[in-house]
Simulated assay, not measured.
Amino acid sequence: MGRSTAGRRSAATVWRGLNARQQAFLLAVVEARLPAGDGGWMLFSLDPAPDGPAGATILDGLRVAGWSTRGARSTLRALLERDLVTMQFGLVRLLDGRLAHRTRARALPFGHETAAAARGAAGEEDPFADGRNMCWVLEGFGADDRLHSVVELTRDQFLAIRDVFDLSADEWMIVGDHPLPLAARSRLQQVVASARFEAGVDYFLGARQDFRPAPEPS
């Protein structure tokens, strides 16, 4: 089993941390209407696929929905590491006598909870989407751990550099502050004129919830 995710992060936060492919695979496992074997295991895939009509595996449904089947095991492992699903691998003999690699999957309780959170949030707007209701602060610390500089970024300034960090809004708030890569400094200076970088100082970009009303236009 992968590292325990449940209890440390909410189901809604975990859902938002999945990419679109991982979300689709999780929902396919949770919502599958296939016959379940012993222990609730359901057939995820057979390779090679048996002759006959498709639709007997979860992967068939994902293929019909337009998802590539390449890398399916890697996607499942990403869900496994988050304690959302568990898997079984083995060999099975098909009716025509061929041996096929069989993958079976089963959603874990936290996987069901995460899928339920996704369905509940489908009609709700994320209050922190696109950097809204957050305050962005660039801080520089010297070798003595003393604070050397503080620069506050506007939402527009953050949006201009957010692609430097592959982090969701929830991850920003959970961890707090993230190291600013050296390669990102010149990029940030182009966006934030007041940003200054000194040798021997480590810089971090952090996010805080901020529900203060926007200032009135002058």
Score class of each variant (00 low, 15 high):
L84I: 04
G176A: 11
A121Q: 14
A116Q: 13
L167M: 07
R102W: 00
L59K: 05
G120V: 00
V151A: 11
R33A: 13
G2C: 06
R196N: 07
S4C: 10
L26Q: 02
V150Q: 15
A169K: 00
V201T: 14
W41R: 08
L159Q: 09
R196E: 13
L43Y: 00
G39F: 08
P48E: 11
V92K: 10
L180Y: 04
A143D: 11
N19Y: 05
T69A: 12
Q22H: 12
L182F: 06
F197P: 03
A121H: 11
A72T: 01
Q23N: 03
L46T: 07
P213N: 08
V92W: 02
M87E: 13
H101Y: 03
R77T: 09
V192A: 09
A199R: 12
Q209S: 09
S4H: 09
A54I: 01
V191M: 10
H101Q: 15
F128V: 08
P53A: 12
M134R: 13
R93D: 07
D130I: 01
A100C: 05
Q189F: 02
A11P: 12
R104F: 01
D38I: 06
D156N: 07
R106N: 03
L108W: 05
M1T: 12
T5A: 06
Q157T: 04
R208A: 14
V150T: 15
L43G: 03
D51H: 11
A122I: 02
E139H: 13
D38M: 07
S218Y: 08
R82Q: 12
A193K: 15
D83R: 10
G111C: 09
W67Y: 13
A129S: 11
R146M: 09
A160Q: 14
S168P: 02
A169C: 06
E152R: 15
E125C: 09
S218I: 04
A199N: 11
D210R: 07
A12M: 02
G90D: 03
Q23H: 07
F128A: 04
S186P: 02
F44Q: 06
D96I: 08
G40F: 04
H101P: 00
D163T: 15
Q190M: 11
D202F: 07
G17R: 11
L138W: 08
L95M: 04
L34N: 03
A118Q: 04
S74Y: 02
V164Q: 15
R63I: 12
A122L: 13
F204A: 00
Q22N: 10
V14T: 15
A107C: 02
L46A: 09
G71N: 07
T86E: 15
A105L: 14
A129E: 14
A117C: 06
F141A: 00
A78E: 15
L108T: 03
G39C: 03
W67E: 12
L180W: 01
R9G: 02
L79Y: 06
R185V: 05
G66K: 04
Y203D: 02
V151L: 03
A100T: 05
R8L: 12
Q209E: 15
A20T: 10
L27F: 01
A143M: 08
A193Y: 03
R102V: 13
L153P: 05
L182Y: 05
A28N: 01
R73A: 10
E31H: 07
L43R: 10
A20M: 09
R132N: 14
V191F: 07
L159F: 01
G142V: 02
F44T: 04
L188Q: 05
A78D: 13
G120S: 13
L147P: 07
P48T: 10
P50I: 09
R21W: 08
R98W: 05
A183G: 05
R93E: 15
G111Q: 02
